[in-house]
């Protein structure tokens, strides 16, 4: 059963990578990275149980943490010109940041 779950997670990771490479807009790619991160967390925990070494769970926790911080970092710096001027409400289509 564990092996089946690991294979499923692998398939999900490959799908995420396809979207990551193909994704037209930047935010599709951030979404792919986010999904890829959560899938790696699951993969590591499952590997921990498949290989019978439960120490792996610390690494799974760090993965989730790092994934969270890098996605926040990407979003924080992707809308770069947010600080140029006060963000008005009716934000029309943004030109190249």
């Amino acid at each position: 059963m564990l092996i089946a779950a690991t294979l499923a997670i692998f398939v999900a990771m490959i799908l995420a990578i396809i979207r990551g490479i193909a994704g037209p807009t930047l935010y599709d790619r951030i979404l792919a990275v986010n999904m890829f991160g959560t899938k790696t967390v699951l993969l590591i925990s499952l590997l921990g149980f498949v290989m019978g070494r439960p120490e792996f769970l610390d690494i799974a926790l760090v993965y989730a943490l790092i994934n969270f911080i890098s996605v926040i970092g990407v979003l924080r710096y992707s809308d770069t010109n947010q600080f140029k001027h006060m963000p008005t409400e009716d934000k029309s289509i943004r030109k190249e940041p």
Partner: peptide, 27 residues
């Protein structure tokens, strides 16, 4: 702990992602 952590950050990241995307004009 891993479960609590994933349950906490999953929705938050989705929220921030949607907000940033909407902010930058993805309609």
């Amino acid at each position: 702990m891993v479960l609590l952590f994933t349950l906490l950050i999953g929705p938050t990241t989705s929220h921030v992602l949607a907000k940033a995307a909407f902010h930058n004009g993805v309609r």
